Simulated scan of single mutants.
Amino acid sequence: MMRKLLTVCLGNYCRSPFAQVALTRRGGAAMTVRSAGLIGKWQDHPAHPSMVDAARRLGHDLTHHRGQQITLDLLQWADDVLAMDTAVLTALRAVCGENNAHKLGLYLSDRDIPDPMGHSDGAFNECAVLIEAGTALHIGNRP
């Protein structure tokens, strides 16, 4: 059975799009991964240029990404919803409804992935490396 993961950050502009491509690459045919943001500010926009560059350095292509805002349909579609930080997780708990609450968790399970927005390219690179390393938590550990 194919596993469906949804990665969520604030705007679907940096962290969750990168997590989507990294998990898709590592998970192969065993999973389908989508991403979304809590806010619609970057709806239909490409990923942040610094994150596109960080992704490229790690062998991923983020150029086709277009931002989307979280919807109840996306939450219902997913088997697991992976929030990039505790603030996003808290917001998701407030909007997801009781039927979807069991699906929610932090991407790194015990710590936040810092939002690189407003920081240097180095912060984007560090963020991407952290997300890439975190893919191991979600590959092959569930049916």
Rank of each mutant, 00 (worst) to 15 (best):
residue 1 M to W: 01
residue 2 M to Y: 04
residue 5 L to V: 02
residue 7 T to W: 01
residue 7 T to G: 05
residue 7 T to E: 01
residue 8 V to P: 08
residue 8 V to F: 09
residue 9 C to W: 01
residue 11 G to C: 06
residue 13 Y to F: 14
residue 14 C to H: 11
residue 18 F to V: 08
residue 18 F to R: 04
residue 21 V to I: 14
residue 26 R to G: 03
residue 26 R to C: 12
residue 26 R to M: 14
residue 27 G to Q: 07
residue 27 G to E: 06
residue 28 G to P: 10
residue 28 G to F: 04
residue 29 A to L: 07
residue 30 A to M: 06
residue 30 A to Y: 10
residue 31 M to Y: 02
residue 34 R to H: 08
residue 35 S to F: 00
residue 35 S to K: 05
residue 36 A to K: 07
residue 38 L to S: 05
residue 38 L to D: 04
residue 40 G to Y: 07
residue 41 K to Y: 15
residue 41 K to W: 15
residue 42 W to L: 07
residue 42 W to M: 08
residue 42 W to K: 10
residue 43 Q to E: 15
residue 43 Q to V: 06
residue 45 H to G: 02
residue 45 H to N: 12
residue 49 P to N: 03
residue 49 P to R: 00
residue 51 M to Y: 00
residue 51 M to A: 02
residue 52 V to P: 01
residue 52 V to E: 13
residue 53 D to A: 15
residue 53 D to Y: 04
residue 54 A to K: 05
residue 55 A to F: 00
residue 55 A to E: 04
residue 57 R to K: 14
residue 58 L to T: 09
residue 58 L to P: 10
residue 59 G to Y: 06
residue 59 G to D: 11
residue 59 G to V: 08
residue 60 H to R: 10
residue 60 H to Q: 12
residue 61 D to N: 13
residue 62 L to A: 03
residue 62 L to V: 06
residue 63 T to R: 13
residue 64 H to I: 02
residue 64 H to C: 08
residue 65 H to P: 10
residue 65 H to C: 00
residue 65 H to E: 06
residue 66 R to H: 09
residue 68 Q to D: 06
residue 72 L to M: 08
residue 72 L to K: 04
residue 73 D to K: 08
residue 73 D to H: 11
residue 74 L to E: 02
residue 75 L to D: 06
residue 75 L to H: 01
residue 75 L to V: 06
residue 76 Q to N: 15
residue 76 Q to L: 03
residue 77 W to N: 08
residue 78 A to Y: 00
residue 78 A to K: 00
residue 78 A to F: 03
residue 79 D to R: 07
residue 79 D to Y: 00
residue 79 D to S: 09
residue 80 D to P: 04
residue 80 D to T: 11
residue 81 V to K: 03
residue 83 A to Q: 06
residue 84 M to V: 09
residue 85 D to P: 10
residue 85 D to A: 01
residue 89 L to Y: 07
residue 89 L to Q: 10
residue 92 L to K: 07
residue 92 L to S: 02
residue 92 L to H: 00
residue 93 R to P: 03
residue 93 R to A: 10
residue 95 V to T: 13
residue 96 C to K: 04
residue 96 C to D: 09
residue 97 G to L: 08
residue 98 E to V: 12
residue 99 N to K: 15
residue 101 A to L: 15
residue 104 L to N: 09
residue 105 G to P: 03
residue 106 L to C: 03
residue 109 S to N: 12
residue 109 S to Q: 14
residue 109 S to D: 13
residue 110 D to E: 13
residue 111 R to D: 09
residue 113 I to R: 06
residue 115 D to R: 09
residue 115 D to L: 03
residue 116 P to F: 04
residue 117 M to L: 15
residue 119 H to C: 11
residue 119 H to I: 01
residue 119 H to Y: 13
residue 120 S to W: 00
residue 121 D to V: 07
residue 122 G to H: 11
residue 123 A to S: 15
residue 124 F to Q: 10
residue 126 E to P: 07
residue 127 C to P: 10
residue 129 V to K: 13
residue 129 V to E: 15
residue 130 L to M: 14
residue 132 E to I: 05
residue 132 E to M: 01
residue 133 A to D: 15
residue 134 G to C: 01
residue 134 G to K: 00
residue 135 T to C: 12
residue 141 N to K: 15
residue 141 N to C: 13
residue 142 R to P: 04
residue 143 P to F: 01
